[in-house]
Design a binder for these strands. Structure first.
Lengths: 255, 255
DNA sequence: CGCTCTAACTTTGTCGGACAAAGGGACAGA
DNA sequence: TCTGTCCCTTTGTCCGACAAAGTTAGAGCG
């Protein structure tokens, strides 16, 4: 017969975790603002009354979580977690879970359509200028797959930004990061891929400028379907995302 | 006149980072599989030829990233990053970026609709059984806001799971985690909130079972609009997500 | 007076060694 | 089979130390 639950589990978190939690609390509840200095390791040793090694382990945890970072002179500051860094964690997780390109494609279809809808509704002049600038650069490198793929990735980040919805921006990023390396392969392998890609971007900017939601959705779908057709020429949609991820992740880590 | 580029930048990452990178590489490229033991700290000291403090800092990084964890006896294992843990990082970031409930609502509308569409198309019998079980538990606690809110959160996780799309599952989670605490407040404040919530779930399960996409989308929209109406009775949609986050994040950390 | 260069001083990254507490395993006894 | 005990390993934490890189305060100079 099971005993009646008389005691609660005791909180026995190790010291470095408590240090990390304590600092995180101060940042999340706003007592430490992004940009504020945290103090030197020695300061923290004094404040928490634990050894420097312990403090350093706690700092690593927060650093990895993107809550604090070291500036040029390696001093500690609170900071806003960068989306791209967090997204690369997620991308890594997706790779490890061996998600397929089909899942990626389906999710991206949803997310990119939502982005363009937001952009059509709320894009500012500045957003449009950024997009136009991106388009110009894309046209200049239409013959260089690597550079074009990078422009494409940036283009969709800018569309998401133009949606003025940061939740959406963040939600689409992990899938987008996994798309990116394949775009280069596709543009390389399919002759008319580059021009079609740029043309789609042009139509998308046009749709945003005219606030034409239908056109925006239509061209986003076409754009993604182009990707899909191109991809299916080189691999099956049911293949899991794997190696293509590696290099890109390494590059992202260097920031 | 600029010198010809004779040398490449040298990799001057600190040792603990190199340790973390090296282990991460082995995990991501599959040479170490999820579940495999990593070895003791002492083993790693020998293998990498650095001090144990250095190894420990590297381990903290990987642990925070969810790539390795310590089992009951605190031995190190590789593991698949848990979505919920990563998502709580993202939720935290969203809080710090002071996103508004409007952004949350809009993004969730997109993501939850996509989830139900996937679920209608691909839910298995097992998925349906889990959902039915959740519904039964929800009906039992319809008068207890906290328990009901928890059931609601789980319900939508199960719907996303039924979509068989892990990218979608992951993408919706951060926003969902921020929703969750408010559901309790709403169910508490609005008398008919609980029964309406359960009724919506019932219709959603029914739609999935009948593979009725229209009904699924319709009831998902209604369900979210209910949330919105309830929320607007207690606060403005343009308020940023803040304090409500804290407690939930703390609880999530304990796993 | 303002600028540069140098000599302290700080801070970080790393190292070596140390120890208590907790877990795991083997073994004896009931 | 279950329990208690002893021993060994591993982890979490601490102490002290040092080189390298960055910072600060002057000293010296124009």
């Amino acid at each position: 017969m099971p005993v009646a639950p008389l005691f609660r589990p005791i909180d026995v978190a190790p010291a470095y975790q408590k240090v990390a939690d304590a600092i995180e609390r101060e940042i999340v509840n706003g007592r430490i603002k992004p940009g504020d200095p945290i103090g030197t390791e020695h300061d923290l040793v004094r404040q928490f009354g634990v050894n420097r090694s312990t403090i350093r382990e706690g700092i690593r945890v927060l650093e990895e979580g993107g809550l604090i970072r070291r500036d040029s002179s390696r001093r500690l500051h609170a900071c806003l977690p960068r989306y791209s860094k967090l997204a690369s964690r997620l991308s890594r997780a997706l790779v490890l879970h061996e998600v397929t390109f089909r899942e990626l494609y389906e999710a991206s279809m949803t997310l990119e359509v939502a982005s363009i809808e937001g952009a059509v509704e709320r894009a500012s002049e500045e957003n449009l200028a950024e997009l136009a600038d991106n388009l110009a650069r894309s046209e200049a490198v239409v013959g260089h797959p690597a550079a074009l793929a990078e422009c494409d990735a940036e283009f969709h980040v800018l569309v998401a930004k133009a949606s003025q919805n940061r939740v959406l921006q963040l939600a689409r990023e992990p899938a987008a990061q996994l798309f990116y390396p394949t775009t280069e392969m596709i543009v390389t392998g399919v002759a008319e891929g580059g021009p079609r890609l740029v043309a789609a971007h042009r139509h998308l900017i046009d749709a945003i400028r005219r606030r034409d939601r239908e056109a925006g959705v239509l061209w986003t779908r076409r754009h993604l379907q182009d990707w899909r057709r191109g991809f299916e020429k080189i691999a099956s949609l049911d293949r899991s995302v794997e190696h293509m991820y590696m290099e890109h992740a390494q590059a992202a880590r260097r920031r």
